[in-house]
């Protein structure tokens, strides 16, 4: 109706610096969490295809626990509940002496959640390989470790690449929930500025645009990786 637009608020000192510092935290949080989630998720995904039953159940339990709880609740659990379960002194250390607790708790929350997603994609990738291949490899004298190393993982992970790309884009968007435990990342910075200036629409549009650009860049990177890792003979995007 009568909203007075003031786009210059985005560029005013100190608000521009705040947006940049928020963007830095968003990128740092997402990339560190993604690195951890990728390693942890691969291990859990492999464990889900393991021969031994208890390893399989343990991995399945992990995936179900983290996949079936809202990410926001996972943030709260790690931030508020986890330190209370620890022995008193360890809990106090986490709450008071851990440097930058909001950031590292966010890393833990985001990576443990995303690991469950990655694990499912990795498992699906491995299970997409016809069973005959693994059986044939075993019959030809390879050990189980070698079967994973030379047959299942090289193929399975390549099948999983497009799906993993999705999770990679998601992690940037999911990182915005870190504002709920007080991390001043991109979304909370723009919310903060909108409260200070009362120019909320400019701030939300700015935040959306930045997330959009991040997602587009991620998509471009993932498409390049997909092209290189594409398995000949699989049904994928045709190369131009």
């Amino acid at each position: 109706m009568r909203y007075s637009w003031k786009w210059s608020a985005v560029l005013t000192d100190p608000y521009f610096d705040w947006i940049i510092s928020g963007l830095e935290l968003t990128l740092l949080l997402s990339l560190i969490s993604w690195a951890i989630a990728l390693v942890l998720g691969c291990l859990i995904g492999i464990a889900r295809t393991a021969e031994t039953k208890w390893i399989r159940s343990l991995a399945a339990a992990y995936v179900e626990c983290f996949r079936n709880v809202p990410l926001l609740v996972i943030f709260f659990l790690w931030y508020f509940v986890a330190p209370e379960i620890l022995p008193r002194n360890a809990g106090l250390w986490v709450k008071r002496d851990l440097p930058f607790p909001e950031f590292w708790t966010s890393v833990v929350a985001l990576s443990t959640y995303t690991a469950a997603m990655v694990a499912e994609q990795v498992r699906a990738g491995i299970e997409a390989i016809p069973r005959g291949q693994a059986n044939a490899a075993l019959a030809s004298g390879l050990t189980r470790w070698q079967v994973y190393r030379y047959i299942l993982l090289p193929v399975g992970l390549r099948i999983a690449v497009p799906a993993l790309g999705n999770e990679f884009i998601n992690i940037f968007k999911n990182s915005s929930l870190a504002l709920s435990i007080g991390l001043l990342e991109l979304t909370s910075r723009t919310r903060q500025i909108s409260e200070y200036t009362y120019q909320p629409l400019e701030m939300f549009i700015t935040a959306s645009a930045v997330y959009f650009v991040i997602a587009m860049l991620t998509t471009a990177i993932m498409m390049a990786i997909e092209r290189r890792s594409r398995l000949p003979g699989m049904i994928t995007r045709a190369t131009r």
Partner: peptide, 18 residues
């Protein structure tokens, strides 16, 4: 500074000695 989202969260931080 701990930049809490709202009062209930700030209270949880105060109560738990964070």
């Amino acid at each position: 500074f701990i930049n809490t989202k709202d009062n209930p969260q700030a209270w949880a931080s105060l109560e738990s000695s964070r």
